[in-house]
């Protein structure tokens, strides 16, 4: 049975306050949502790639994690957690451990789409019983908002700045969720802390309690990098979903399923407008860039609908 919000709020908090993430940070909302799906009686080992989440949540001598936590490096949380999971399997087999543990790796889009892709791919291919959660905020925020392969086209970042002749990042974003689907692991889903959180709770629960590897790609706004006012976190998420910039779907044992279809698909402009990183697109001479983005969103959305047989 899927976890509803009424029940979810009763679960013990596994990620405490007192961490040093920015005010209004989406990453901690993502983390809290995923961890809420853990059954209270289950223990967990959590890994994090170097990134905002890690440096802010585990800053000696403080940790915001109520479960066991390990940070190793930027590009290797997949391998690190797979090692811990292998240790668990053998120690359990040998009777040295009795409790049930779940294994969850968190990485930003830098540690997941880019530098950590190999380690993630290896861990998933090997079939470890773990969940890899990408909190995708579309740039290397920890080091000061540099472009990643998850950064949307035309976004202004510090290594893809919008200038007089180049209007921000020049490439469309990599579709990592589909790359992960190509691993044919038991569960892959794209989600966001959206609406009443039913989508992310249900997907986190499935990911954690499906035997074998699972991958969650979670849309995670960054007020600092995207340049919007912190209170607007949930609104930005809503716009990403309603414009079909960030479709919610899952691939369970190879079966593609759309989780949410907007009643009325909003134009991409709605998602772009509140964010300072797209400000340059709203100059009159750049109207065609928005059109280009719209075309790409439409193309990807249509292809997804086809895959999901919608």
């Amino acid at each position: 049975m899927a976890l509803n919000l009424r029940e979810a709020v009763k679960r013990p908090e596994r990620f405490t306050g007192g961490h040093r993430l920015c005010a209004g940070c989406g990453a901690s909302v993502t983390v809290r949502s995923v961890l809420r799906a853990l059954k209270p009686e289950d223990k967990a080992v959590i890994g994090a790639a170097t990134g905002c989440l890690e440096v802010s949540s585990c800053l000696y001598p403080y940790t915001a994690w109520k479960d066991s936590f390990i940070h190793n490096a930027f590009e290797n949380v997949g391998a690190t957690v797979s090692g811990a999971e292998a240790a668990y399997r053998v120690l359990k087999k040998k009777g040295k451990i009795n409790d049930n543990y779940k294994f969850i790796a968190f990485g930003g889009d830098g540690g997941t789409y880019d530098i950590g892709l190999q380690s993630l791919s290896g861990a998933m291919e090997r079939g470890h019983d773990m969940v890899y959660v990408c909190y995708d905020n579309g740039a290397y925020m920890n080091t000061g908002i540099q472009r990643s392969s998850a950064t949307p086209k035309f976004a202004n970042t510090t290594t893809s700045p919008a200038g007089k002749v180049v209007p921000g990042k020049q490439q469309f974003r990599k579709d990592l969720t589909q790359v992960m689907a190509g691993h044919h692991i038991p569960y892959v889903a794209q989600t966001a802390p959206f609406g009443n959180f039913n989508d992310i709770h249900a997907k986190a629960e499935k990911a954690i309690y499906t035997e074998g590897p699972a991958f969650l790609n979670v849309f995670t706004p960054c007020p600092r990098g995207w340049r919007y006012d912190t209170p607007k976190l949930m609104e930005i998420i809503k716009l990403a979903v309603e414009t079909c910039y960030w479709p919610l779907y899952e691939i369970e044992n190879g079966k593609w399923k759309l989780s949410y279809k907007p009643k009325k698909k909003l134009p991409i402009e709605e998602f772009l407008r509140p964010q300072g990183r797209f400000k340059h697109l709203f100059k009159p001479e750049n109207q065609h860039l928005i059109e280009e983005l719209q075309k790409e969103v439409d193309k990807r959305w249509e292809a997804l609908l086809e895959k999901c047989e919608e």
Partner: peptide, 11 residues
């Protein structure tokens, strides 16, 4: 990296 994870886990 996996050795680090496994050793940290107690193996």
């Amino acid at each position: 990296s996996a050795c680090v994870g496994a050793s940290a886990a107690g193996a």
